[in-house]
Design a binder for these strands. Structure first.
Lengths: 126, 126
DNA sequence: CAACTAATGCAATATTGTTGCAAATATAAT
DNA sequence: ATTATATTTGCAACAATATTGCATTAGTTG
């Protein structure tokens, strides 16, 4: 694995995601960073952070890619089998770190990663 | 609910999806239809078909939106709680209609739809 | 067949994601 | 601290995907 560096952009982007209660999309991060760095840099840093396991991805049923840092990220035993909830009203996506679905795949399928996203109305919008 | 019409485009697109063993993206459908109708029409028809419950969506971890028709579609008791498998090698997405995950959401969350997509290597590519 | 309205095509535009390359910068070695 | 190096960044260009407005076409109903 290629060595990766700790740059200002990377730190700032990781902090933005870690400090957020909700999962963030590329464009949301871009806005929060207020033109601190280029759009392209954000795409590349996000890819790196995912590779390094510091954050994880979740995709809504609309195809919007969101990024989040959860507690199991950056631990040895780190997996992201938990569910994400996407509110149809306020469009926020949150990690439900305690909700891990149980399923039974035929063992010919080699599963590398999962994406569990539920859509509906969150408690705040009800 | 607004009334919807049975047009040639709608029929052709639905048949394309129904006849396919794998879930199809907008661009794949566009290719299969070989310029029978406009790209925009396909977008609109897909939305309508989803609204009417004749097909359902699945989104890969890369944010690619795929469409599929399953057996429970178009039945009264129709739900899409099954898992989709996305192969990282051949990039095909299939419905695992028999694999329905069990999970336990806090009941303050009103769940309308689910998106379960696993990524990995399918039996053919192993 | 006439009237009504949904659906389509087209053009324009918006949004999202990718690539190549030169310049900048983090890291390790001296 | 200075230098050597390879990663990272910004910029520009491009590609892919999705959306909107409006005039025209074509289902559907009576």
């Amino acid at each position: 694995m290629k060595k990766t560096r700790n740059t200002v952009a990377k730190t700032k982007i990781l902090n933005t995601i870690s400090d957020s209660k909700i999962a963030l999309s590329h464009s949301e991060i871009h806005e929060l960073l207020d033109d601190f760095c280029d759009r392209v840099t954000i795409y590349r840093v996000l890819d790196r952070l995912v590779d390094e396991g510091l954050i994880h991805k979740a995709v809504t049923i609309e195809g919007v890619v969101k990024y989040a840092a959860c507690h199991t990220c950056s631990t040895d035993e780190h997996h992201h089998n938990h569910i994400h909830f996407s509110c149809e009203q306020c469009h926020t996506v949150i990690c439900m770190e305690n909700v891990e679905p149980v399923f039974n795949m035929p063992k010919q399928y080699k599963v590398h990663s999962v994406n569990f996203t539920l859509s509906g109305i969150c408690p705040q919008c009800s």
